[in-house]
Amino acid sequence: MQTMLKVENVVKSFDGTGVLKGVSFTLDEGKVIVIVGPSGCGKSTLLRCINGLEQVDSGKIYLKDELISGRTRDMHLVRQKVGMVFQSYDLFPHMNVMQNLLLGPTKALRKNGEEVRREALAMLRRVGLEGKENALPRTLSGGQKQRVALVRAMLMHPELLLLDEITAALDPEMVSEVLNVVIDLARDGMTMAIVTHEMRFAEAVADQVLFLEDGMAAESGPPEQFFHHPQTERARRFLRSFSYESKNSRKEKQDE
């Protein structure tokens, strides 16, 4: 299996405050890594470094075999291959849903508008937004906006998708409609790096968990291990703060 993303010893600080203090991981094609940790631990910064919204201070980031960190020119070419969705949806408010979806593929990738439109309609149907193509973003609910944002990223056919706390701004009843789309994507083999506070979702979707604390990888491993047998005291404390109980531990309790 090919390595999709390789992060090597990434260091990043803002105004002298270290946010990332040497983080490394690799992600294979078709796999999902979930990055968790207390707020301020550098999760979002890590994602933002991967697609060049922030420049790393040192360290290297490779997409497949291509070095993508430390570039200032042609970053848009990298971003055409790396999709990203944010907490705040960031749909373009002056465009309707379809215009939002078409902008990247037709302008950045110079694809034929008709073909993309057909594909976009199919994807909208798949995420349960049939008939919303002419709606303006402000008329949609948060959950709908976020699904549009996911479709917008997917229509670029990215090799890698970065999701930065995409449910953090949603009302609780809308969280699952968005996360189900992500789980669906994972099943289809989309390579993703996900930052989230939804532990149950994290356990369900992850092939690999990276626990960041204070800008360093405090623990990493498969989800079964991280969620059920965390190796470090810090991870245990972190999971307790969510009063997180995995399916298995609940079952164990019932068995008692």
Partner: peptide, 19 residues
């Protein structure tokens, strides 16, 4: 974040300004 959203779908700087 709008600027970043534009960058994230691979628009060039000029396209981002224009659209």
């Amino acid at each position: 974040t709008q600027k970043e959203a534009g960058e994230c779908i691979g628009l060039t700087r000029g396209q981002n300004i224009r659209y």
